[in-house]
Write a protein that binds this DNA or RNA. Structure first.
Lengths: 305, 305
DNA sequence: GCTATATATACTCAATAAGAGCATATATAG
DNA sequence: CTATATATGCTCTTATTGAGTATATATAGC
């Protein structure tokens, strides 16, 4: 026996038998806003248990999604795994969550919901969210009271007190609001909650994780191209990046940066808007694609910190 | 029923009952080289099944590690979860892997192994690895033969043909070598394998994941400080970064960049080497710590791509 | 006190990248 | 011809980076 044993494993301890639940956050862009595909009136994600015939977790997840939606998935990544205490009768659950991108205009029968319906404070493309941010700041200040360290944390995460807004901190922001009792999920608090749709179980937390992750991901991989149509204008690309990041950016610089990397190549075609000059259509360069997926890219987004 | 159903779920399909295995890659630095703490002569990681009394996966992992080693864990993160086909009698397994940092000089009874014993090609701090890289390049060229796309992938990942070496690509590199049959784990090939220790099951793949992840992580979080002693010299810090990244860097610039951020503050003490000028001891600034963990840092490392 | 050694600093310089602004071109609808 | 919405081109300034040269400081051993 080891002497410095701190938390002994009891003699009669038993390994848990559990079901593995595969949860899919399916992201797509419509109306210049990131959306998720939901079930149960926006309360739930496509999901299903790992089955005997699934040969891997990811394949199992794809299988369930295809079964429930018939969709082809683009960029796919595992988000996080956690244990879900058995609610009610059943087994212990292990939830394994995935995020996958769906190309724009894919046909499906699920309800789309704007991600910013769930996290209104995360969309800072225009000034509309300012009053909400102000409410949040006030409520957080109350919560922090005279706890300086706590307030420091609020300021960092929400970009208050001369801190910059960091779009990748969606998850810490949600967690902070949860701790502060400002969202309905923090059950002990029934005071006035912030606006924003909620979800079943801990699904809104998973969504916040997905948002953080996708904002990080689109910076240095070509994953956005799995959300856009095969052919797109540079403006569409910029608007997609802005939609995901929740931040507006400088147009000329965006185009300069995109073009000096060799991510996209122009096609022979044009997009004709109802008014105004037609826009050149581009495509994700097939030659550099393989290289980009591995070596990474550096798509322009507002600087963090 | 949905019409475009592609992979129907059979009527008699059953959710799987499985055990969750918690695997811990414990990283520490000794002799200016990143090490892992191993069992079974370097073939295995500390691990154990999720138990009934574990209230979360991470707590379960910590519990097993404490039980097996008595160690306190620093920066901890989940790596990846995957299904492990039942080998032999038992249940289906779900493996949930974690990486955790251990502070230098922590006492424990496990065997330390250099990470670069497993991946000799990943250490490029000096010219010693050049001949090995040359061997790899040759063997990969054979494998790629005249498949241009395949060779393109090799070149990107291993920094051949004027591509830059990207230290974060440890996992893709390992996967490539696996596909090419150059490591003993690719069982169909029994030709001459590259040097480097192997591990049980798919543990070397988990280790490659950990290496990729830690190299990415130390760039933009203060995680390194969980590997160093509480007080350290700037040279120690630089050497730790170099050890993890497997790359040497410019000393003056390193110090400039570290100090212009306010990550570290000098203490009153000095480190006295056997010869030479004593070095100022620094500590991770307690005031900015909280802020750094959330907002991120930008520790200097060789540029990627 | 001198020398070898290993460390800590200071400063310069060129190349680049990023942020922000001004101006103009092009095509369409009405 | 005009209003409009898009696409481009070009110029600044500032910050960041990578690399180099030189110097200062403290110790051990002779």
């Amino acid at each position: 026996m080891i002497s410095h044993l701190t938390t002994p494993i009891p003699q009669n301890a038993q390994p848990v038998l559990c079901e593995a639940e595969l949860v899919a956050v399916l992201v797509s862009i419509s109306h210049n806003t990131p959306h998720i595909l939901t079930l149960e009136h926006g309360n739930s994600f496509p999901s299903g248990p790992l089955m005997v015939e699934h040969r891997s977790l990811q394949k199992g997840m794809r299988n369930w999604v295809e079964h429930q939606t018939g969709l082809k998935l683009g960029h796919t990544e595992q988000l996080y795994t956690f244990a879900d205490p058995p609610h009610g009768h059943g087994h212990q659950m292990v939830q394994i969550s995935y995020m996958a991108f769906i190309r724009q205009n894919s046909a499906h029968s699920l309800a789309e919901r704007s991600i910013y319906d769930y996290f209104p404070w995360e969309d800072r493309r225009d000034a509309a969210s300012c009053p909400l941010l102000h409410v949040i700041a006030t409520r957080l200040k109350q919560w922090a009271a005279d706890n300086a360290q706590r307030w420091q944390r609020c300021a960092t995460v929400f970009g208050l007190d001369n801190h910059a807004w960091n779009d990748e901190l969606s998850l810490p922001r949600y967690e902070l609001l949860w701790e502060a009792g400002l969202v309905p999920e923090s059950s002990w608090q029934n005071g006035p909650h912030l606006p924003g749709l909620s979800m079943h179980r801990d699904y809104r937390r998973i969504l916040a994780t997905a948002l953080s992750r996708m904002r990080a991901k689109i910076r240095y991989t070509p994953a956005v191209f799995d959300l856009l149509p095969r052919q797109f204008t540079l403006l569409q690309l910029q608007q997609a990046m802005e939609a995901l990041a929740g931040r507006a950016m400088h147009k000329q610089n965006f185009r300069r940066l995109v073009q000096q990397q060799k991510l996209v190549s122009r096609t022979a075609e044009y997009d004709f808007p109802p008014q105004g000059r037609p826009a050149q259509l581009y495509q994700f360069s097939p030659e550099t694609a393989e290289h980009c997926y591995l070596a990474g890219t550096k798509l322009p987004l507002p600087a963090i910190s």
